[in-house]
């Protein structure tokens, strides 16, 4: 009973990594048989989405960032989350934090570059908000974008739904 749970921390960390397109191997589990297939209706169309499953909502010149319902369902059994502190700079594609489940440690990536101005302490204290309200109370951080155009360059809900459906086969 060794291999899956063996080989130390690196393997555990890599296991459920959620990147769709960054050149890393897809998670090794077979997603082909998910009961609820995800469609565009699961992804609000006023948000933009990153390949790494974060969403962004623009509010004036501020960007709210969260995790998509698909990502949250894939993660399951979340126990602790760590996010970049308010005041820190993040880079698009760089690390925004990590979320750990019973079985795995997963990176959360910054969908855009900018400065973190606020962290949602309530979601850090109660991770069930991620699944109960991923696009509302489950928001993660508020970022002041370096460049507002970066938000528009992210995927639309339609494109993200296609990407998720693609990962689903």
């Amino acid at each position: 009973m060794a291999e899956v749970f063996g080989h130390g921390q690196a393997k555990v960390i890599a296991w459920f990594r959620l990147n769709l397109y960054n050149g890393h191997k897809r998670p090794s589990f077979d997603q082909g048989e998910m009961k609820e297939s995800y469609s565009v209706s699961n992804f609000p169309n006023d948000l933009r989405y990153a390949e790494t499953h974060e969403w962004v909502r623009l509010e004036g010149e501020m960007a709210i960032v969260g995790l998509s319902a698909f990502a949250v369902e894939q993660l399951t059994d979340l126990i602790v989350m760590d996010l970049a502190k308010a005041g820190s700079k993040v880079t698009a594609g760089g690390r925004l934090g990590e979320v750990e489940s019973v079985k795995s440690v997963n990176d959360i990536y910054a969908p855009i570059s900018g400065e973190v101005v606020e962290v949602n302490a309530e979601v850090v204290a109660d991770l069930s908000k991620l699944s109960s309200d991923p696009y509302g109370a489950g928001w993660l951080v508020r970022i002041k974008p370096e460049n507002l155009a970066d938000v528009a360059a992210l995927m639309s809900s339609t494109d993200y739904a296609k990407a998720v459906a693609g990962a689903d086969h």
Binding site: M1, A2, E3, V4, W15, S28, F29, D30, Q31, E33, M34, K35
Partner: peptide, 8 residues
């Protein structure tokens, strides 16, 4: 919906 992994 079993998430299948390669185990041993």
């Amino acid at each position: 919906q079993g998430r299948l992994v390669d185990f041993a």
